[in-house]
Write a protein that binds this DNA or RNA. Structure first.
Lengths: 204, 204
DNA sequence: CCGCATTGCAACTTGGAGTTGCGATAACCT
DNA sequence: AGGTTATCGCAACTCCAAGTTGCAATGCGG
């Protein structure tokens, strides 16, 4: 029993199941981006994927698990970590990459789905946590390098600086709903840099 | 024909309907704060309010409209606008008041509900927009006074500064899920102030 | 090319949303 | 106070999507 891996199990890379996944997960993302999570239907995903509803329920515990799996596969390719030689350049590149990832209609819809539904779907809360944890962990060298170069105060808290960088972008995305563009990114970078230099982002 | 006001109509302040509203709206907020929007049931709200399900459907178009109405009534008492004499003091007071409003379990649950469900419920999107528009509009004098006193550069954009102030708080609330306390508020105030003084928050 | 796991399919249960008709009742007006 | 009218309680109903189950068909791996 329990022959197939549901949700958390690693995906098979060969055989019939892999083709099934290769059809269902993109179909799920497309449905998410078009109808939104509210309008998403397992039936609809199945039809778009050219697969039967039952097959989906046999491979994923339920709809939230399916959506979490699809989103995880989408966020697998994360934003690149820059190394331009200066903090200003690195922070600007980071912010611009973040903005770019939420500037396409699909990318924007998917991140908003994660943030919105994480409040009630534990599976998406896990996706969200993994997403931010991973990004902050990977981006940390940008700050430590800057400190080593003497561009930033030694007591600067990397995580705090990165949060200050990301916060305005997500704030516009989630709270005010304003358009997010490169100007937003560049301003966020300048604000974060000014804050760090003013020594208001010290490690605890 | 259309005798009663549904949803957007102003609430009657006397008669049977007012007692009904006075029972249903708080019951809705309680249900929201305990079971969350996902687990919220019109049936459940009706029972908690000691009212019949049909009555709710006769007074509100549907569940989202009911929730929007309840949330609007909750956010009616907004955060106070300080006037301490200095920008530093005003910004700190603003940030602390904002933090306080999301520090109670109920307040936190309700604002998260608004932000999360606004992505798919137009009624809550309206609540969200009204909430932020109103707050930024009311808080603007804090910045204009600071500019008049010469504490901030004349080209400082009030809205931009206030967004910079609020962003880190909402970012923690929505994205990282970290606890939000007075330290968060004070740091947000310092960051916003440093940014304004570094002249990176100019009006367009 | 054969056995077994996986898929397709249809029919089913469950549960909440929202609706309707009717009898009961409380509010308002004279 | 008394009659009119709007509102509420109640029960029964439709609708729709979630998730389940038994069985037949089919494609994959050895």
């Amino acid at each position: 029993m329990e022959s197939a891996a549901t949700s958390t199990g690693r995906a098979p890379t060969v055989g019939r199941g892999s083709r099934m996944r290769a059809a269902v997960l993109p179909a799920t993302l497309t449905e998410l981006a078009t109808t939104g999570y509210a309008g998403l239907t397992v039936e609809g995903v199945a039809q778009r994927a050219g697969v039967h509803k039952t097959t989906i329920y046999r491979n994923w515990k339920d709809a939230p698990t399916l959506v979490a799996d699809a989103l995880t596969s989408h966020f697998a390719t994360d934003i690149p970590i820059p190394d331009t030689g200066t903090v200003a350049g690195d922070l600007r590149a980071l912010a611009r990459a973040l903005v770019a990832s939420v500037s396409t209609p699909v990318g924007r819809a998917l991140i908003i789905t994660v943030l919105a539904e994480a409040a009630r779907l534990p599976q998406l809360a896990d996706v969200k946590r993994a997403l931010f944890d991973d990004r902050f962990r990977r981006a940390e060298p940008v700050v430590t390098r800057a400190v080593e170069r003497g561009e930033l105060p030694a007591e600067t808290d990397p995580a705090e600086l990165l949060k200050t960088l990301a916060a305005p972008i997500y704030f516009r995305l989630v709270c005010t709903g304003e358009p997010v563009d490169e100007g937003t990114a560049d301003r966020a970078a300048q604000v974060a840099l000014a804050a760090a230099r003013a020594r208001v982002l010290p490690a605890a």
